[in-house]
Amino acid sequence: MRNLRNFQPAADACAKLRIEIGSDFAGLAIQNENTPDVSWHQAAGNRNDKYKKINVRFGKGIAGRVISTGRPMSVVHFPNDILGKALDYPIMLAENLQSAYAVPLVFNQVQRGVLLVGNRQEHIFTEEAKEAVARTAAELQELIDRFYRGEADGEA
C-alpha cells in the first residue's frame, strides 16, 4: 500500500512549508496505484477533513493537471482565472482557497504526486515562496522515495 496518510515526515514537511511561506494551506496529493486518479494524503492548515475523501480525476483541477502535464501551475483569483469549471477544482472548494501554487513530484521515476500551497484570499506567490515550494518538493521526493523503497524491502 502506497499510503502516506500516516507518514509523519511528509506531514511535517507540509506543516513546515506552510509556516515558512505564511500560506493558509499546504497539501500533498499522490496518484493512486491502480487508477489514474489522484488523492490527497497530507494537509496542513486544513479547516476540515474533506481532503481525505477527495479523488481527483486525472487531468482535472490543479492536482490532476499538474500530474498530467508534469508542470507547475498557479491560480491567482479562483474561480475567475481558471480553465474549466469551478467544480473541477475540489480542493479549492473544500478548503475555500482563492489562490494556489502547485508543483509536480515524481517517485521511483514513474509514480507522481503534487505539492500544493494555497491562500484563502487572492494572492500572487512570490519567487521566494515558489523556491521554498520547490525545495520542499525535492525534499519530499527523496523522503517518499526512500519510504517506498523501504516498503519494497519489507522494512516499513
Partner: peptide
C-alpha cells in the same frame, strides 16, 4: 459526489 468533493 462524495468521492469528488469529500462531502457526505
Amino acid at each position: 459526489y462524495t468521492n469528488t468533493f469529500g462531502i457526505e
